[in-house]
Design a protein around this nucleic acid. Structure first.
Lengths: 192, 192
DNA sequence: CCCCCTCTAGAACGAACGCTCTATCCAGAG
DNA sequence: CTCTGGATAGAGCGTTCGTTCTAGAGGGGG
């Protein structure tokens, strides 16, 4: 019984989330997940009879909540909506750099790999993106922006952060994220 | 000698580019590339002794030029820089929809899958992103924007389009791209 | 004519894949 | 104590992976 304290199931989900975030869905093997989680193959299939796809769905949900928490903290750290959006970009930049540029968006890679397949993973990724957009929209609404503007802006805010994060990872440089923060901040301010 | 007219090498590169764009680098097999290109495994390794990675690098370069051509046409279709940027988003939306939401950015998936590996594929992806940014920056410069603003904006323009395209693919809906166009247009206009 | 070189063709290899299966462990119920 | 069922453990299945290798097809120069 290694790596006690946390349940085996949780360790599997966390390990899967981290590995898929870094190597994608196809590039991550079930055996690798088991090894990283200090579990065995039998345990993985015990908790996830649906196999690799079921593990990935659980991992996407975990990643969604993890990222949502980061977003919430950043959004709540500033009263002004423009400043709040910029804070999100700053936090992402800090965390990405701290991870050695490896831990980007937890769902993008898996989403792109499973595009044509109409599966549960796609749905989980879409749900995550919607949830994050809703968080930003909620903040903008509470700051008094018109409903339509708030929802539209929230979509672009998340999308720009996603794109900037990818570029930051590829270049191993957080400038794209910081620029995204500055530009998004200016954009949001222009709607006040 | 099936599928004449085009050289075997070119068919391999084009097929690889399309497959990697849709399924990622890891998810695309060498044998699948050969089959799709109507070539044999021997031909693939004849033209690309470097193996799968060499094929992928050539595919990334092809994708870079293909996307650059689309970008060039869109940017040249409008005089006003804000309108030009919005035209890019519109063209991407049209093409993405026409492909059945499968043909997104030709390098993002491969870039994310090979993040920690410090290989040629990473370099090819970074080069592609830089090239596209340079095209946008050039347009903004020619429209009279200050050099610093033009270069910074170009980074965010490409990143936002990338992120919006991913969301559009996941949701099978081009709204994210159209919103990106509107917001980027407004952002660019605010720097005039 | 033959030689040679580019390109095509696909069998075969070891490794890794997702998954199934049986066996074992062990805490708690009776 | 025995019994039971959730949890753990990993060998082994068939398949596919990237790669290597040998063999042949085809055509221009000696």
């Amino acid at each position: 019984m290694p790596a006690a304290q946390t349940s085996t199931r949780d360790r599997i989900v966390v390990a899967a989330a981290r590995l898929i975030q870094r190597q994608g869905y196809v590039g991550t093997g079930i055996k690798q997940i088991a090894k990283e989680a200090e579990a065995t193959l039998g345990s993985v299939y015990h908790f996830f009879p649906g196999g690799k796809e079921a593990v990935a769905v659980a991992a996407m949900e975990y990643g969604r909540e993890e990222f949502a928490a980061v977003l919430r903290t950043a959004l709540d750290s500033e009263d002004d909506p423009a400043a709040a959006v910029e804070a999100c970009a700053r936090v992402l930049a800090t965390e990405l750099r701290a991870s050695g540029w490896t831990d980007g968006c937890p769902v993008t890679a898996a989403a792109l790999e499973t595009l044509g397949t109409d599966n549960e993973i796609q749905r989980a990724c879409a749900t995550a993106l919607s949830a994050w957009q809703a968080q930003v929209a909620d903040k903008l609404l509470r700051c008094g922006l018109p409903a339509q503007d708030a929802h539209n802006l929230a979509v672009t805010v998340i999308n720009t952060l996603e794109g900037a994060e990818v570029t930051a990872q590829v270049n191993r440089d957080d400038t794209p994220l910081l620029l995204a923060g500055r530009h998004l901040s200016r954009l949001v301010a222009s709607y006040r």
